[in-house]
Nucleic acid binder design. Structure first.
Lengths: 213, 213
DNA sequence: ATAAAAGTTAAACAAACGTTTGTCAAGCCC
DNA sequence: GGGCTTGACAAACGTTTGTTTAACTTTTAT
């Protein structure tokens, strides 16, 4: 592990922490390990981040800051709703690809109960939901069916995130090359999967409405 | 927290550990906390489980033991492939519902790097993949398209598991009652979602094959 | 009845934890 | 040059970690 990189200590600490947290989980990593990985003194962690959880906070802030950008420009009136969804899926896949460890740390810690970051989590998740549901409604979905929205959205996101989460496992079992072509095909596959799935749900809904009339 | 339940100490330790691990994650929970939750002496943990990771090992063993049963009897020749898939999804949803904490602990620790359980993980995952891929092929899927299988299967599982993983969050945002009716509808919704999605993928595949001929 | 085994306990263990302290050197402003 | 801030460090802080020990009680088997 390189210790003498030229960029500043704070960034080195952050980078080392992201990598270690992604690998072992936040609670399983000690400050000494982070300091060693970053090539800095232990005291620097409290100095720059006000403690270990301070690092996690900054990581999650950074994750959401970047993640929000994914939804920027997706709601394009000149394109069909279907094309918008395909675009969004491409965006998310590329985002996780370029920010894998950052995403994994945040995604892994999100469901865990850590009182020190409870507020931050609540705030970010609320903002997230607002942004997404606004987007969903403007993209041709039936707003009266909250249930389906509450199922399909999380399903899509968990599909992509989990694919990266179990990358080491997948790598051992399936012999894919995880290159540009793979991700291109992957994004298109799940886009087709979900678009057809949503279509099927809408049709079933119509059938049921008619039969109850 | 009840401490004087009549069943034996080992089960009490296991139950307390499962609950705490699910809530905070394995590494964030100490043996004293587990002992207190179970109402036993700290030394009992090493006595019955040979240490803290011993508990986790037993938890994961138990999880996979039960999880494997979900696939039992799903491959029913008298039913259509579609009905088989719907049945499987119902089984999985009910399984996670009845074993939520057990599932969450295993699912949360699976992607993390903990050397002491690396072997156990590898063994179980291999067994899992074998069982599933055998099932998938016998259920009317095109065995030549490994890629789609590698995408759809994990997507389905992550969808269900993640739904439970973020239950506290969902609970606060959407005002659903998580009762029998909810889970019934949930299972049917994602069954429709995935069955139509798979159908769409198969059609697209056919189209592409024809165009390249 | 008695000895062996199993169960349970409080106490102590070394090791690791996250954080704080005091110190020193370098760079800056006035 | 004196006073101040900032960055970096080693060392030590008190606490908590998981585990072990040895003594004690209860159960079981002979």
């Amino acid at each position: 592990m390189k210790e003498q990189d030229s960029f500043d200590p704070k960034k080195r600490i952050l980078a080392a922490a992201i990598s270690l947290f992604a690998q072992k989980g936040f609670a399983a990593v000690g400050v000494r390990e982070i300091a060693a990985g970053a090539g800095v003194n232990i005291a620097m962690i409290s100095y720059y981040f006000e403690g270990k959880v301070g690092i996690l906070k900054e990581i999650m802030e950074e994750f959401f800051r970047r993640y929000f950008l994914v939804f920027e420009g997706v709601d394009d009136k000149s394109k069909t709703p279907e094309a918008c969804v395909r675009g969004l899926i491409h965006n998310i896949v590329n985002f996780v690809r370029e920010n894998t460890d950052l995403t994994m740390v945040s995604y892994n810690e999100l469901p865990l109960d850590l009182p020190e970051i409870a507020e931050l989590k609540a705030e970010k998740i609320t903002a997230m939901i607002q942004r997404i549901s606004g987007l969903v409604l403007r993209m041709g979905f039936d707003p009266s069916d909250v249930f389906v929205i509450a199922v399909v959205g999380p399903s899509l996101i968990s599909t992509i995130f989990t694919n990266f989460r179990f990358r080491p496992v997948l790598k051992r079992v399936f012999r894919f090359k995880f290159d540009d072509a793979y991700y291109e095909r992957y994004a298109e596959t799940i886009a087709t999967l979900f678009l057809n799935g949503i279509k099927g749900l809408a049709e079933e809904r119509k059938r049921k409405k008619r039969s109850t009339k």
